[in-house]
């Protein structure tokens, strides 16, 4: 069973009924959610995580260099 099995000609009204209002491409292009502002605490958490990711990536590079040079 596949959607193509039930593939009737749909008119515009039917498409509008079958899809939710915000499911239409038109609606998604026009309507955007507002920007959320972060509290100071949340900003600190997000910056902390950003620093964490950068530091950890540096450590991964260190680990790879250590391993490769140990192999030689």
């Amino acid at each position: 069973m596949s959607p193509r099995h039930h593939d009737p000609d749909l008119d515009q009204e039917e498409v509008l009924q079958l899809l939710e209002d915000d499911q239409l491409v038109w609606a998604k292009e026009k309507v955007h959610l507002g920007r959320r502002h972060f509290s100071r605490g949340l900003s600190v958490v997000l910056w902390g995580l950003r620093v964490y990711v950068v530091l950890m990536l540096v450590l991964i590079v260190v680990r790879v260099v250590q391993t490769v040079s140990a192999g030689h």
């Binding site: 069973m1 749909l10 498409v15 899809l19 239409l24 491409v25 038109w26």
Partner: peptide, 24 residues
């Protein structure tokens, strides 16, 4: 399609295929 204009949603190929899935 008549009625499709700035005040009416333009139905795209993507919408149509998705509506077919929802109909099923």
């Amino acid at each position: 399609a008549p009625g499709t204009g700035p005040d009416h949603p333009a139905i795209t190929h993507e919408d149509l295929d998705r509506a077919r899935d929802r109909l099923a």
